[in-house]
Nucleic acid binder design. Structure first.
Lengths: 341, 341
DNA sequence: TATGCTTATATAAACGTTTAAACGAAGATG
DNA sequence: CATCTTCGTTTAAACGTTTATATAAGCATA
């Protein structure tokens, strides 16, 4: 009545547990006859292997941990950015294709991922969008592969997968400039050293410089990354700034901006042109459709899994960094305006 | 250099492994002196317990499996409904508060969840939005607690947590009627026996009947649940139907409907009033804000975890069913029209 | 002092795998 | 025929816990 073990299969097939194990793992050259006998017995009894036992013996778990920032809007603990859910989905899918499972863990304070990793014998950790320096240091002292997705630190203790954020900022801003805009706000999450936002801001500056447009510090408005801070940023922009366009450093901010402006009868793109970054699903849902610097989210998750698996296969290999290509996805949130002559 | 085990701690503290284990699990009355000695040793060595070993011995894993439908829009394997990601987040959060971790697994075909459950020794499974009858039967023959969230089957083999879908359909439709609408389309995912959509449709009929409005089968349009099918449904509605309002049985459908209508210069709510169900985050982001029959998503996840934990604590207790309360969340997608006199 | 009772701790088996090492049989080689 | 290989399989230890059972020590009681 209890669990069917390898032992039961062995008895049923009239062989030893070792033989069963060898068959299951396709290890030694087991002659076809015994192989089939074992397989038949396993099938008959409905045997399914116990990963806990396996994990203990092999010292690996076929388990990947995914860490995602969670926030608490109205006491509903929710993943900080819908973007992250989309990455998670692709990570899970790709991991499963390779025989791995995914443990997902949210994070609000500085939780101890390392403890989770050790407790569960994780084969790797994928950390999404994390910045807390403090937590990082703990993680350096481990041999378990860690892939940082959009979590920028300029040390090379970890694998990383990211986009060229500076270029993303540049592309978005240039697109606005090429459509005739000269007064372009920069609406962003907090600009921290070594962080994504800092790089995107640098790209924004690059574009302005290239076209000889003077930078105005007043045009740079920062808050956190989220819908509601997008709304606040928009209000501030509309009240205090004389601009025709805004580069939002995350789609979720852009969505908030659009919503807020719309509520105050500011038309998009007629009065304000908006560009975002991420190419979330909701960028497509938005009215008007959000023009954004897109990345292939599926590919991002896929690559993250691939990096973990590579690191597992060859632990001695050095830290890898992968830059995901970006493309401008044009929708309807940008208007061509008359160039001042 | 390898893993720090209970053995190492025992040696360091000068006690046996049993004592260490008792201390860690607060099992027997261990005198304060030894307790502190052990704790100090564990702290010093950086001991963290091995859940694989624990799981094997205790035959439970402190692991909850969450199954979520995945679809493949443009080869990006993505969770079918953003709604699900929000439930997942709350499940993960609540589970973690109780010392559990979450394994998430997408599902497209009829994968074998039971195998996952046995392999990983899961303490429970939460299945979200599943209908495939075939998969269900496998799951009946197990003692591991299963909670169905929005996955309707009218057998009582499983725990379930849901909303009163019939009432939800009624509330949404009545809201439209009370705002003067008489010609109300029903835009929905497929209506299957024992499924959510069937119940919401029944509620829709209830409301029509109550107000003496004749039902028209033509007004009932079905597709799958998703943004793009929302667009198709809207096109069909605009082309073929003479209605002033639509009840969409899922927010993600409603979002697609709004987008499509907007692109064809149909104003919302001026020309069409729209009501959805779910109260997704994006219902708030939408322009106009989507009026919807809301449920507390956080509470939904919380309850699901609670049911698993209860079932683990007392496996003999019967199957539970929990109906989550709903409320109408009024935003801007419904217009009051003149009642025909 | 012998006996029993309590309390604190240790011993060792068990959970279900994997795999190095051992083993026996059969065939090849001298 | 003795010896060596090769092949197929088994034995048994190990992974890190938990916990029933045993043990030892201390103390009170008769």
């Amino acid at each position: 009545m209890g669990r069917i073990t390898i032992k039961d299969v062995a008895k049923e097939a009239g062989v030893s547990t070792a033989t069963v194990s060898y068959v299951m793992n396709e290890k030694k050259n087991i002659p076809e006859a015994t192989r089939e006998q074992v397989l038949a017995a396993a099938e008959k009894l409905g045997y399914v292997s116990n990963y806990s036992a396996r994990s203990m013996r092999l010292n690996r778990s076929n388990l990947i941990g995914v860490i995602i920032p969670q926030t608490e809007p109205g006491s509903q603990m929710v993943f900080e950015n819908p973007f992250y859910s989309e990455i998670l989905s692709s990570i899970e899918y790709c991991a499963r294709q390779s025989g791995y499972h995914v443990i997902v863990s949210g994070t609000n304070a500085d939780e101890n991922y390392l403890k989770l990793a050790q407790q569960r014998n994780l084969d790797g950790i994928i950390i999404i969008g994390m910045y807390k320096e403090q937590s990082y240091t703990d993680l350096r002292n481990t041999r378990i592969p860690i892939v940082l997705v959009d979590s920028y630190m300029d040390d090379h203790y970890f694998h990383a997968i990211r986009i060229n954020d500076r270029h993303a900022g540049y592309v978005a801003t240039r697109h606005l400039i090429e459509n005739g805009h000269r007064k372009i706000a920069f609406l962003s999450g907090a600009i921290k050293d070594g962080g994504v936002m800092k790089l995107r801001h640098a790209g924004y500056c690059d574009a302005l410089d290239e076209f000889g447009i003077p930078r105005s510090p007043d045009y740079v408005l920062t808050e956190s990354v989220g819908f509601d801070s997008g709304r606040r940023l928009a209000r501030k922009m509309a009240d205090e700034l004389d601009v025709t366009a805004a580069f939002c450093t995350a789609d979720i901010i852009a969505i908030g901006v659009i919503k807020e402006l719309n509520e105050h009868q500011r038309l998009i793109p007629e009065q304000y042109s908006i560009v975002g970054v991420d190419n979330l699903s909701i960028a497509r849902y938005s009215i008007p459709g959000l023009t954004t610097v897109g990345q292939n989210i599926y590919h991002k998750g896929e690559k993250a899994v691939e990096m973990i698996l590579n690191a597992v296969a060859d632990p001695t290999a050095g830290k890898q960094e992968f830059i995901l290509p970006i493309t401008l996805v044009e929708r309807e949130s940008v208007r061509k305006i008359n160039l001042p002559t």
